[in-house]
Design a protein around this nucleic acid. Structure first.
Ligand SMILES: Nc1ccn([C@H]2C[C@H](O)[C@@H](COP(=O)(O)OP(=O)(O)OP(=O)(O)O)O2)c(=O)n1
Length: 853
DNA sequence: ATCTCATGTTAG
DNA sequence: GCGGCCTAACATGAGAT
């Protein structure tokens, strides 16, 4: 018992060990910090009972290991005859509580020739995991393992042979079942199967755009953590926009002996047909090949006899070159006031001109930077556009490319109108930053032949309203600013408010390639994996989210099942839905559930799903204060620990524990433990009354209530007022005061549970003849009231009740008129109400409704 | 008037 | 039978408050 529990507790603090540190090597305080309150208390209790007072923690663990081995030996030796080595070659780990318990299982495994693993440290060594039930996080973690029920052990022993583990697999879903098949038969897993648990990993490893986004996020956060000088509006600035020439292509070509970047048309891509070209060199561009084009298209652009050179990605090397690039910028003799990261291969450097006697030599800066980067990167060229506004620096960069630099200020350019016009004549409209295909076609819808910036300027000749009507308010004024060589307010933020400009405002994941599912369960799994990925990031940056959205791509009704692009998404409708969380969270369980239910709301047939994206729209910093709050709020009632337990702890660890207890606000009590307070009992009782679905919501509300009494934020107070009202409504509803169920109060009952019972009895009694029309109206009336008052979860409960009931009775009554009437009622009158109100009383929490019935 | 949501757009 | 791999931020316009 003692061992069982302690080991279970240790598991929950295992994360540190998986990073390669044994329990002894870690900072004890840190380990303790990881444990939940309950685990900490149990841990202390066990330590207190099991330890002699002069034991240190390290000795305690070592002692445990030794004793363990001794015991294993003894177990084996103690058996008069040797048992059959049933589990020879198996290394088994036991997760969580099992029946029979860990100790017994351990003994069985060892005495029948198996090895027992305490920790999942050496994950590779473990051949089987025994468990009866796994939380989401563990399921994701263990999904490449053979996870079995304890019966595999006991029954193997009974039958005196190793039974096939597949028959005892703890299969929680389709995915796990397919894994069983795979492990059992050929272990070849195709990397492009989105049902494969490793899909996401390989997908990301190969996705250039994923790398690009990640690099950018890293650069931004690094920028914020380093120092910079913020210019003030009105300062004279020198802005250098620096960008590698065809970056990926250059890096790839440098690593290719037989390639000549100045003669061969080179592209970087994965495949040979419908693969995107990440980057192409300037030889390829001469033939009209562009970044983002498909390889097949590029090939068709080449004249006969010219061969396209396709090179693979080398992300590692790309990172290295970029690191050198940024180092050169940082170490340059003239210290830049700002080095703004645009992307892995592109930066905007700013010098504030202080009217010193020695004005900076922009020409020299460009030349020196270019040659220094060329040298240090072993042959990568960068181009530089320099001016005193961001747009002009960018346009100058365009002129400078490839392998050059261009310097012109706004004053120089605009001074002479003819010069300015000839400058504008050199650019296409989508050369302007933030102006792309869509806006250009809007402009062209007004006047077809707008080919360069000069024509654009002349057509609109300063008519702001017309422009704004065409492309929108902000875009219109932005374009007009640009046509005078000036930056608009939004892009200026990059220079004048870099802190807010570069701060992360959202976090998201998006997979629009390789998505081919058959069932909702598979999609649920995939959503779990994605949510896990995001939550991990969220926790790493010590944030929570209060709003999440799910976006899916659904194959257009008339689009072919398989699009031209291999495993691409093809022509799709984008559907998205967002939901707000009562309180900000970073818990995988809450978030994954929310998302899975949102997927159902979007109503996309599983087979038509072509893309998935999850966004955390609002990120909230976890302040130390909030951290404490959540710790406490998670546990509505004060945690206590018996003082004797504390007193019996090994003396040298007492201090650690004491600090930890204080931090968590766990109090020591002299025995006996006090019972819960009256208020707690009252709340608990109220909770008991609630359907489980909304119980959590109300718990959240109560948390908010309590938080409110401490924080004075008016915004929260307003939220609280609304919440309170909801609670009051729910309570009134559940307890029968002002019950919304009046229309059928002839039934006398008004509590939700009882209403459910009545509905079920009514259902059962009318399966053959069908329900009375008036009764149905009454019931629907009630559902409408629920819907109007934003209590969709309750309607969901009813739908579920009825749907489960229908399934149950379908064999026996499927042909009866009553059965079919109920089925119609559910489909036509109940389920549609679920989507009626977008603002549900929190979010719909039910996942297992089969909308297709 | 100001907010929220779903949807679009852009860049690398 | 080979093919092939995003994500953050802002803008817009409709509808709610
Ligand atoms: N559609 C795109 C655009 C860019 N990239 C990658 C490859 C590029 O090498 C890198 C930098 O993008 P740039 O827009 O700077 O393009 P290049 O550096 O390739 O060419 P250049 O800047 O000379 O026009 O980002 C990509 O994968 N897919």
């Amino acid at each position: 018992m003692d061992d069982d529990k302690l080991l279970a507790i240790l598991e929950s603090s295992q994360e540190g060990e998986e990073r390669g540190l044994g329990p002894e090597e870690r900072d004890p305080a840190e380990t303790l910090g990881r444990l939940s309150d309950d685990a900490l208390i149990e841990y202390m209790t066990n330590l207190s009972q099991g330890a002699r007072k002069d034991f240190t923690r390290e000795e305690y663990f070592r002692d445990k290991e030794i004793k363990q081995r001794e015991r294993d030996e003894a177990t084996r030796a103690g058996l008069g005859r040797a048992n059959a080595p049933i589990f020879a070659g198996c290394t088994i780990y036991i997760n969580g509580y099992t029946k029979p318990g860990r100790l017994q299982l351990h003994e069985m495994i060892v005495s029948y020739g198996g090895k027992f693993q305490h920790y999942l440290l050496a994950k590779k060594k473990v051949t089987h995991i025994v468990a009866t039930n796994l939380p989401l996080k563990k399921r994701l973690e263990f999904r490449n393992y053979r996870v079995v029920r304890p019966e595999w052990i006991t029954e193997s022993i009974e039958q005196q042979k190793l039974l096939p583990w597949q028959d005892y697999a703890l299969s929680w879903d389709q995915e796990q079942r397919s894994l069983q098949l795979k492990v059992a038969s050929a272990p070849v897993s195709s990397a492009v199967d989105c049902k494969d648990p490793n899909f996401l990993k390989t997908f990301f490893e190969n996705s250039r755009l994923h790398h690009l986004s990640n690099w950018k996020a890293d650069l931004r956060s690094r920028f914020l953590s380093e120092g910079f000088n913020k210019p003030s509006p009105g300062d004279a600035l020198s802005i250098f926009h620096i960008d590698f020439d065809c970056f990926f292509a250059t890096v790839a070509a440098l690593g290719c002996e037989s390639c000549d970047i100045n003669r061969d048309p080179i592209v970087v891509c994965h495949g040979s047909k419908s693969s995107d070209i990440a980057s192409c060199n300037y030889v390829a561009r001469k033939y009209g090949i562009r970044n983002g084009m498909w390889v097949s298209r590029a090939k068709s652009l080449l004249p006969p006899g010219v061969e396209l050179v396709s090179l693979p990605y080398n992300f590692k090397e790309i990172e290295e070159k970029s690191k050198i690039f940024y180092t050169v910028l940082k170490e340059y003799k003239i210290k830049f006031d700002l080095i703004l990261p645009i992307s892995i291969d592109e930066a905007v450097c700013v010098v504030i001109d202080h009217h010193t006697p020695h004005p900076i030599d922009r020409d020299e800066i460009c030349r020196e930077l270019r040659s220094e980067i060329w040298k240090r990167t072993g042959g990568c060229t960068v181009s530089i556009g320099c001016s005193n506004t961001l747009v002009l620096a960018r346009l100058n960069l365009k002129i400078a490319k490839p392998n050059g630099y261009h310097i012109l200020t706004q004053q120089q350019l605009v001074e002479n109108e003819a010069d300015w016009h000839s400058y504008l004549g050199k650019f296409q409209i989508d050369d302007l930053p933030g102006i792309g295909y869509s806006i250009v076609s809007k402009l062209r819808s007004l006047r077809q032949h707008l080919n360069n910036l000069l024509q654009l300027k002349q057509y609109f000749h300063n008519s702001l309203p017309l422009l704004q009507k065409c492309v929108g308010k902000k875009t219109g004024s932005k374009i007009l600013m640009y046509l005078h060589g000036k930056d608009d307010e939004e892009s200026s933020r990059m220079i004048f408010e870099p802190e807010s400009f570069f701060a992360r405002k959202s976090l998201s994941i998006e997979i629009n390639w390789g998505i081919r599912f058959d069932t909702v369960q598979e999609i649920d799994n995939f959503i779990d994996t994605c949510a896990d990925y995001l939550v991990q990031k969220l926790q790493e940056m010590n944030k929570r989210t209060s709003q999440i959205t799910l976006k899916v791509l659904r194959r257009c009704a008339d689009a072919p099942i398989e699009p031209p692009k291999y495993l691409g998404c093809g022509e799709c409708d984008a559907l998205s839905h967002n939901c707000r969380l009562g309180i900000p969270t970073s818990e995988l369980g809450v978030i994954a559930t929310e998302l899975k239910s949102t997927f159902r709301l979007l109503g996309c047939p599983p087979k038509d799903l072509r893309g998935v994206s999850i966004q955390f729209n609002k990120l909230i910093e976890v302040s130390y204060d909030q951290n404490e709050n959540q710790q406490r709020l998670k546990l509505p009632f004060q945690k206590t620990l018996n003082f004797d337990v504390f007193d019996n702890l090994p003396s040298d660890v007492k201090n650690d524990f004491s600090k930890e207890l204080k931090r968590r606000n766990i109090v020591l009590t002299s025995s006996p433990r006090p019972k819960t307070s009256y208020a707690a009992t009252y709340e608990e009782k109220f909770m008991e009354e609630l359907p489980t679905q909304i119980r959590n919501e109300v718990k959240n509300d109560l948390r908010i209530n309590r938080k409110i009494t401490r924080t004075k934020l008016s915004e929260l107070r307003e939220q609280n007022r609304k919440k309170k009202e909801s609670i009051r409504n729910v309570r009134a509803h559940l307890l029968g005061h002002e019950s919304l169920f009046e229309p059928i109060k002839f039934q006398k009952e008004s509590r939700f549970k009882d209403i459910c019972r009545i509905v079920m009895e009514w259902f059962d009694a009318t399966l053959i003849e069908g329900p009375h029309e008036k009764d149905l109206l009454l019931f629907e009336n009630y559902l409408d009231k629920l819907s109007d008052s934003n209590r969709v979860p309750l309607i969901l409960r009813f739908s579920k009740l009825i749907s489960v009931r229908l399934n149950l009775k379908s064999n026996q009554y499927g042909q009866e008129a009553g059965f079919q009437e109920w089925e119609q009622f559910l489909l036509k009158n109940v389920i549609p109400k679920l989507n009626k109100n977008k603002h549900t009383f929190q979010t719909v929490r039910k996942l297992d409704i089969d909308f297709d019935i």
